[in-house]
């Protein structure tokens, strides 16, 4: 799967849950949202090798 987060990208060949993906990238689920095809995903959702996934950072300076 193709993963986009800020100005970085990653590619993973295997099937992963959202939770596993965030663990791989060492991102806290509290600080991001995960979106596939414009749809917001919960951590138990499965991501497939042909998916394009966008990780949205939610924390800002305030």
């Amino acid at each position: 799967m193709h993963v986009i987060y800020r100005d970085r990208t990653w590619d993973f060949a295997e099937t992963l849950t959202v939770r596993q993906l965030l663990e791989r990238l060492k991102l806290l689920p509290e600080a991001v949202l995960v979106v596939r095809d414009g749809v917001l995903l919960t951590e138990d959702q499965t991501l497939h090798p042909d998916d394009t996934v966008k990780i949205v950072a939610v924390i800002s300076g305030g």
């Binding site: 509290e30 600080a31 991001v32 949202l33 979106v35 917001l40 949205v56 939610v58 924390i59």
Partner: peptide
């Protein structure tokens, strides 16, 4: 903050 971001999306 995550809840607000989810609302916005």
């Amino acid at each position: 903050e995550r809840e607000v971001a989810a609302y916005t999306l």
